[in-house]
Design a protein around this nucleic acid. Structure first.
Length: 512
RNA sequence: GCCGACGUAGCUCAGUGGCAGAGCAACUGAUUCGUAAUCAGUAGGCCGGGGGUUCAAAUCCCCCCGUCGGCUCCA
């Protein structure tokens, strides 16, 4: 590459007809380029030549190779020809180039910084979770602090759902195979499911939560007056994801969805979808995420009538249009039972992660013969919305860890306050301070090791604990605490009750 | 699943065929100190697992498991 750059080879653009291009690539024996060209219409084909290398490209290019002042090859990887896993795999070389060395260095520095906030690294450093080869790939073990973070999220979710008229339900991990056959999961989702056998009967481990929810609905005769019914479950599901796609907390085989199924009349559908969109927006604002919205339409492998798909897809478009939200369309990317609205969070390093999704389903209620008695006294089939807000708690936690670089806002911090005594002389007082914090539902720890205060502060900083309370003789004698904030440093010295009040205010506001 | 790389102490890593190492963490002792690292000592290993080559394997070969970077697929 250095040689090519030194030669300052110009990039020459020229146009060929299809026949000329075919002839050229035949002569070169460039089979892949030949395949691409042969599929083009009879339009002029844009070509670029640089030295003795000729390639088809729309352009534009820089003027000559000498303009590349700084480059670095980053990685090599296999890539399927034309992005199809049934095609041959070719080798792809990844690299990056800049107009000067300084900008290349800046770019590489940013990549390094991104690595530092990788949730897998932080998850280990902050002792949040682990993944054990002996347990299995894609299966998460929550350590105390990770489990605490997850519990905080779960408590938050339950409260937010109850406020919005959802009911908490729970389904089992295993359901008989026949039920999965009835729902269409066996035909359409089998490769992602795990199966087992009990007393000679076959069971499927749930990859989704909807079946039990439909059975709850079916346990009584429902009136139109009962609708909408909103069932919420923090549902643990297991899916067989291919080994190569697993990625920390972001892509796992066992995960818990903040899943709900809303059963309503067709007339209520629009309001319900808008209600969910509002819910998503309110929650994302609390965490400070920005996001993109996509609509996914009917996939090749699917169940249900064209008419039902049309109705469902229109309902989703309609809701987004009413809300005036911009969206892009993903043709054929819907679930097998219905189209969906996906909300993709943008994380701190610009990657996007699917979290919230709203799926509109006219088909499963029909298959399971769900019904309600309408105003006319006759039976009608309800519509079902499948939806998640955070998505999978595992993935959401991964995104959160990277979003905050592990420095969670006070309301999310597994440990909110750490009490540090300076010498043994303040041990009893420090312990009473920690006890009082815990008594007040503040997540507190104490460090009474015989170490110097500087070391204790350093350790607490590395643990990214929001508040440190430094306890020396001065504090002990005046019955106060010296507050240190992990980012703002030294704060006021004040009575403990005063500090507790401040913490509670900050927690209630869910400040960033 | 596919292509490639990697797997050594809790963590980060050195060790390329001949006695398994370092720093940090841990543990023990001393130190009682005012806002990011006190000192000394001790312990820690089936070198991911299994098989093979060799007088001899962390090191070379094969299989499996797992991780990482991509591809395909997805919450």
């Amino acid at each position: 590459m250095r040689d090519i750059i030194k030669q300052k080879l110009p990039f020459k653009r020229f146009i060929l007809t299809k026949a000329e291009a075919v002839e050229l690539f035949q002569k070169q024996g460039a089979d892949y380029k030949l395949e691409l060209v042969s599929e083009l219409d009879n339009q002029p084909i844009s070509m670029y030549q640089q030295g003795d290398f000729t390639d088809l490209c729309r352009g534009p290019h820089i003027l000559h190779t000498g303009m590349v002042k700084a480059f670095k090859l980053l990685s090599v990887a296999g890539a399927y020809w034309r992005g199809n896993e049934h095609n041959k795999m070719l080798q792809r070389i990844y690299g990056t180039a800049f107009a000067d060395k300084k900008r290349l260095k800046q770019h590489l520095f940013r990549l390094e910084e991104a690595k530092k906030r990788d949730h897998r690294k932080l998850g280990q450093e902050l002792d949040l979770f682990s993944i054990h080869p002996d347990v299995g790939a894609g299966l998460i073990i929550y350590h105390p602090k990770g489990a605490m973070l997850r519990n905080i999220l779960e408590d938050f979710e339950k409260k937010e759902h109850l406020r919005r008229g959802y009911q908490l339900v729970m389904g089992p991990q295993l359901l008989k195979l026949d039920l999965w056959k009835k729902s269409g999961h066996y035909d359409n989702y089998r490769e992602n499911m795990y199966f087992t056998e009990i007393d000679g009967r076959k069971y499927g481990i749930k990859p989704m939560n909807c079946l039990a929810h439909m059975l709850i609905y079916k346990s009584k005769i429902r009136s139109y007056r009962d609708l909408p019914i909103r069932y919420f479950e923090l549902g643990a599901v297991y899916r067989h994801e291919k080994s190569g796609v697993l990625h920390g907390l972001m892509r796992v085989r066992g995960f818990t969805q903040d899943d709900a199924h809303i059963l309503c009349t067709p007339q209520q559908l629009n309001d319900e979808i808008i209600g969910v969109i509002d819910f998503v927006q309110e929650v994302m604002d609390i965490f400070g995420f920005s996001y993109d919205i996509e609509i996914s339409t009917r996939p090749a492998k699917s169940i249900g009538s064209d008419e039902a798909w049309q109705l469902a897809t229109d309902a989703l478009y309609n809701a987004l249009n009413i809300k005036g939200l911009p969206y892009t369309i993903n043709e054929g990317d819907g679930a097998f039972y219905g189209p969906k609205i996906d909300v993709k969070l943008r994380d701190a390093i610009g990657r996007s992660w699917q979290c919230a999704t709203i799926q509109c389903d006219f088909t499963l209620p029909d298959k399971f013969k769900l019904c309600y008695i309408g105003e006319d006294g006759k039976r009608h089939t309800p519509v079902m919305l499948h939806r998640v807000i955070l998505g999978a708690l595992e993935r959401f936690m991964g995104v959160l860890i990277e979003h905050y670089t592990g420095a969670f806002p006070l309301w999310l911090s597994p440990v909110q306050v750490k009490v540090l005594n300076i010498t043994d002389n303040q041990k009893d007082y420090a312990e009473s301070v920690a006890r009082e914090l815990i008594e007040q539902d503040i997540r507190a720890e104490i460090d009474i090791r015989g170490e110097k205060i500087g070391l204790k502060i350093k350790d607490a900083q590395l643990e990214k604990i929001p508040y440190m309370l430094i306890i020396g003789d001065k504090e002990k004698d005046s019955n106060q605490v010296a507050v240190r904030h992990r980012k703002k440093g030294r704060q006021a010295t004040l009575p403990l009750e005063e500090f507790i009040k401040q913490v509670k205010t900050e927690v209630n506001q869910k400040s960033q």
